[in-house]
Design a protein around this nucleic acid. Structure first.
Lengths: 155, 155
DNA sequence: TAATTACCAAGTGAATTACTAGGTAATACA
DNA sequence: TGTATTACCTAGTAATTCACTTGGTAATTA
């Protein structure tokens, strides 16, 4: 699975939409302001999100974007797939002449990893993130319990 | 964690080295031939691997590359970190002015994912892959049991 | 001394990223 | 009806990365 900053931008923008879209549509100009992403780049991202029905645009004054479905029905994987396409790590579908060699071994490895990442992201919805944020606001400034092991440089 | 084709090339090359390096050093020319990677690109990758002591070069006729340590001591994460650098998904180390907003929420998400991927790859060694290959060779042409759920397009 | 190998530096076309510029189309409101 | 506001669309661009090519130098073997 492709994991680029582009996908991160899209997730961030969608989360902004989920958090601020309770009382009407959110304009790209607002998201641009909030998240520091250029308006035109957002337009491109949202064109892709619209194609997958993850958002719904409303034109004219007072317009903007709504989520295309409920936040609980939108997984992070959905969002990333929409903007990044789903690039297969391996290109031989097992059929090629690389069986048994180092090449196909890494193919299997990458397939497994790809599933791992996908499952992780498919099991987290926008709704989950929103609730995580509410929890954070409730406990005021106290930090969330985060993953303990820092994965800094394996030197 | 950065997951590019570059890292995949490196893993593939290292695996080739582990599989064929039993009876002496393996030349980059051989790996280039086996894996279809250009010689000079391999040289660049191996310069990075050498810096992390993952491989050891021997010059002159009959020279080539050895693994820098035993295959069991080299994790896939080690290899990828060597050639891809470890790019943090988040840039604010938690300290920035994005706490509570959509931006920091996705930061936490990406940190978690990063750990997930790292742990997956850190728990697989080159030795594991080699043994997986031997197992494959033993059962001749019968395919390995692979991950069941295909993660093809979430449409 | 010559061949072979690692090792090193610079440059390149293609792709991607994040962005700018410059539009058109639909809608709300005066 | 006209104007502002928003989404929507197309093209182009500087910076970066990828995978590679070119053209070397350094160490070792025979």
């Amino acid at each position: 699975m492709r994991l680029s900053t582009k996908g991160r931008y899209a997730v961030t923008a969608m989360l902004d939409l989920a958090l601020n879209g309770k009382n009407g549509p959110v304009t790209l100009a607002e998201i641009s302001e909030n998240q520091g992403i250029s308006l035109s780049y957002l337009e491109q991202l949202f064109a892709a999100l619209r194609n997958k029905d993850l958002v719904r645009g409303v034109r004219g004054p007072g317009g903007g974007y709504y989520l295309g479905k409920s936040a609980d029905e939108i997984s992070i994987a959905n969002i990333i797939c929409a903007v990044d396409e789903w690039v297969e790590f391996t290109r031989c579908g097992g059929r090629q002449n690389c069986s048994g060699g180092a090449r196909c071994l890494t193919h299997t490895l990458w397939d497994d990893l790809s599933s791992e990442i996908f499952n992780f992201l498919a099991n987290i919805s926008l709704g989950d993130l929103v609730r995580r944020n509410l929890g954070k606001k409730e406990e005021e400034e106290r930090p969330l319990s985060v993953v303990g092991d820092s994965n800094s440089q394996a030197a």
